[in-house]
């Protein structure tokens, strides 16, 4: 069953077309990544499905569309851009309003506050919170009432590395609980690490959508260019004591497509099925170079993303 079906949605802000005829669907239980550079229409799209923006044309429905959308939103956790709370109210009072709107039990508030480690500061007013705490309260509000659908728009914005990894853990946990997650982001590895499905937007146009493996090898419709014809690429970062010599040696290796040196690291790209890390390591060793670092980066999503959004 599809949780969300988006059908030909367009949105104009004055003369600017923020979304152009976007259609896709989100299957139940998926972690759906919406990717796109800044200003590609991700937030606009999420704003439309949460009813804070009116689509200029097109329609969307949750499930079969029979239930009023605001009733469905009560069973939905949404974090759009920044946390929006009443600054003069405490965390608990703010969540109390959310709980009243959603019609969920007051006991849920304590549970949610504990989950994000804000229970000790629950009675301080929201305006005294640090950015990270505000974001955590927004997540507590998102989790209130154990929603079936979770929509997160750039959830790691403004968080420190620890916070970012906590959010990733949380997304994985929520996915494991069987929730459907829609995640908008411009951070590719964020999406790559957690998503099962992806839609890529560029200047309001939907470039591809579908499950992540399929999408990345599928024919790319709008330009007719076939991505499977371009073999999958792998990037490797290599470092040794003598970078110049290393670069020279690497040039003699068959299958290397490109060599770049920057900031003391040599990055080589090659077709995935033609060259492995072992082969690179052996080649260097045979030529008298001992590598101090060899990292394989699967640049699949990123290279495809850049390709598509160029």
């Amino acid at each position: 069953m599809n949780i969300l079906t988006i059908n030909g949605i367009s949105k104009n802000f004055g003369s600017i077309a923020a979304l152009k005829n976007v259609s896709f669907f989100v299957p139940e239980g998926s972690v759906y990544g919406i990717l796109g550079p800044n200003g590609s229409g991700k937030t606009t799209l999420l704003g439309i499905v949460t009813d804070v923006l009116r689509a200029s044309s097109g329609a969307y429905k949750f499930y079969d569309g029979s239930k009023p959308v605001n009733e469905i939103r009560k069973d939905m956790g949404v974090l759009l851009e920044t946390p929006n709370f009443y600054p003069y109210l405490s965390a608990r009072q703010n969540l109390n309003i959310v709980a009243k709107i959603k019609g969920c039990d007051a006991a849920e508030i304590t549970k949610a506050l504990k989950k994000v480690n804000l229970i000790e500061r629950q009675h301080s007013s929201f305006k005294t919170y640090s950015l990270g705490m505000k974001q955590r309260l927004a997540i507590a509000s998102t989790l209130l009432g154990d929603p079936k659908i979770v929509i997160l728009d750039e959830p790691t914005n403004g968080l420190d590395p620890e916070g970012i990894s906590e959010i990733r853990q949380l997304i994985k946990l929520l996915a494991k609980e069987g929730k459907t997650i829609i995640l908008a982001s411009h951070l590719l590895d964020e999406v790559e690490k957690v998503c099962t499905h992806v839609a890529i937007l560029k200047k309001g146009e939907l470039l591809v959508s579908g499950d992540i493996d399929g999408t990345l090898s599928k024919k790319h419709g709008s330009t007719g260019e076939n991505l499977t014809e371009q073999k999958e690429k792998t990037m490797m970062e290599v470092v040794s004591d003598d970078l110049e010599k290393l670069a020279g040696v690497l040039k003699t290796l068959n299958g290397i497509l490109d060599i770049n040196e920057s900031e003391g690291v040599i990055t080589v790209s090659c077709h995935t099925d033609e060259l492995t890390a072992q082969q690179v390591n052996k080649h260097c060793f045979d030529n008298g170079i001992i590598l101090s670092r060899l990292t394989v980066k699967n640049k699949n999503l990123e290279s495809k993303f850049l390709e598509l959004t160029k």
Partner: peptide, 12 residues
């Protein structure tokens, strides 16, 4: 404070 949007998002 954009809470008017949040109220809608939360389910009003």
């Amino acid at each position: 404070y954009r809470t008017h949007r949040q109220n809608i998002i939360d389910g009003l």
